[in-house]
């Protein structure tokens, strides 16, 4: 019976399954990095941290905050992408996590803005 219905209705294919198994949604286990690569990434993170600390000691004026924020973001994304494997993993994980992250940044930034700039 069930096989018949697929041919009768015009209504069955509104959209693709957003989470359907597509070739590139399957985890790329084989593309896993080797231990050496992780050590290298950690080393990069250390250098970035050192740069951050150094930057906070140098007179950079108004450039300091954006520079620090950019380096912070790079570190954040690096850990998430490689150590947490978001890069090679199914995209839905990135969606879940970054949805929370961007929502948090969005609402809290907006809320803080109402305190600092918009208040009469």
């Amino acid at each position: 019976m069930s096989t018949d219905t697929t041919t009768t209705g015009t209504e069955h294919h509104f959209g693709e399954d957003i989470t359907a198994i597509e070739p590139d949604a399957i985890p790329h286990e084989h593309k896993d990095l080797r231990d050496r690569d992780y050590v290298f990434i950690a080393f990069l993170l250390l250098i970035l941290t050192a740069l951050e600390v150094a930057a906070s000691y140098i007179e950079l004026g108004s450039l300091l905050v954006p520079i620090l924020l950019i380096m912070m973001a790079i570190k954040f994304v690096t850990v998430a992408s490689f150590f947490m494997h978001l890069r090679g993993d199914a995209r839905i994980f990135s969606w879940m996590f970054y949805a929370g992250l961007f929502l948090a940044v969005g609402v809290y930034a907006a809320a803080l803005t109402t305190f600092h700039f918009f208040a009469p």
Binding site: M1, D4, T8, E11
Partner: peptide, 16 residues
């Protein structure tokens, strides 16, 4: 169950 349609139960009961 294996699903073939939105409103699966309807389509199992009714045929066009």
């Amino acid at each position: 169950p294996t699903v073939h349609a939105l409103d699966e139960m309807f389509h199992r009961k009714y045929e066009d």
